[in-house]
Design a protein around this nucleic acid. Sequence first.
DNA 1: GAAGTGTCAATTGTCGACAATCGGCATTAT
DNA 2: ATAATGCCGATTGTCGACAATTGACACTTC
Lengths: 229, 229
Amino acid sequence: MDKLFSEVSTTDLVTQIARQITQAIVAGRLKPGERLTELQLSRDFGTSRAPVREAARLLESQGLVTFSPRRGFFVRTLTANDLREIYELRIGLELHAAALALDRIEARKVAALERQIEKLYRLADRGSIEEQIFEDFNFHRMLCAAAGNARLLRVYDELAVEMRVGITLIGKIYDDPHRLAQTHEPIVETLKNRDRDALLAALHYHIEAAQEAVVSLFEGIEAETASAP
Amino acid sequence: MDKLFSEVSTTDLVTQIARQITQAIVAGRLKPGERLTELQLSRDFGTSRAPVREAARLLESQGLVTFSPRRGFFVRTLTANDLREIYELRIGLELHAAALALDRIEARKVAALERQIEKLYRLADRGSIEEQIFEDFNFHRMLCAAAGNARLLRVYDELAVEMRVGITLIGKIYDDPHRLAQTHEPIVETLKNRDRDALLAALHYHIEAAQEAVVSLFEGIEAETASAP
DNA sequence: GAAGTGTCAATTGTCGACAATCGGCATTAT
DNA sequence: ATAATGCCGATTGTCGACAATTGACACTTC
């Protein structure tokens, strides 16, 4: 028998708070290095400090905030080297996921990937940069999900949060949004043809291009802030 | 000027508690599925419930325990499929790490890997199975560390905890401990020769062998427990 | 004036308490 | 006998409070 009702959301405070803080960081409303005081946060959320602490610890384990004993929580500051590491790890994860997906992916999911590319094209014409970034992430997440390994996907999701932080700080990566959509086509193409080597090569090229864009932009920012404090 | 004194350990309760619980799970003193009640734990540790809760949430983010709202924390129960996923992910991570290490590793660290193999040989003669497992892990961790990517290492460490849980539940994997040491030699050998393809092949074979051993043992256990009660 | 010391407000670490909720058991009705 | 209902102890979710610690600032000292 089908369920008559969907579950009522009993999301506890910790989850809600963690979600809100994550949003604020990813959206850039909380600046890197900024201090998060428990009292301030708990006042904002209208709760006591206990759930705030637990939420902050959760975010710490995800690398979104850092924690100094007796000092508190701070919004994580990403360096160019951090981003190099993040994308380097992403390459490893996503290529592995793609290789696994090659053997397992169903036709339905391949079609979904193709539709996702079309969505990227549509957003290139009339869509905000935020939407494009979001759907770009979605494409790659769908690919990783197709690997059929829940743990891999979890690690990828954590990494994606950090990537989003980095990208938000920049605000803009791609010059031509149509080109962004276009660069995804060879990935699905090679996946459909079960051409393993070509798939890995296409993905590797795709991610490395993003990496270089992001890292070089960050190095520029670091050079600025180092000379003009 | 050099520091005159090393820092005094001010490890907070949360860290200490998390460490102790992890120890208990990895050592098998806490059985899978077992319920962890906060009051009981806080009594054992001689603290209040707050630090216990935070520690438990930390372990949850590492996948060592699960958490049901309003029900509490339970020691994670690993299935054969979980272990398949874990090792599948490990293959991706460790091969990527090895490929990165190939370009970056220093001679000193290669030598350390060789010494580690010798240690495995020594332990094969006169050493407990626990020590062998521990040093086997150490070898692979050193390899991942040589990739020079802190994030990758962190993810690997989290995965290693889960692997240790799985292995502890079995208690025994390798028939011949000398053979365990031996199988590590081609890895270092190909690493020294900068033979990328051979290195990846050797590692892949090595890990997949472990995977098959562990997964098949778990499938056996699951078949038992399914028919027994 | 520079270096070091003492003081204080702000913040974290931890605690004990109370209300909300859950699972199980006895009870009742069919 | 079986299924649904109501109750109860046990446990979690959250809170406010207090002690411990920190960083900053004024103050002393040379």
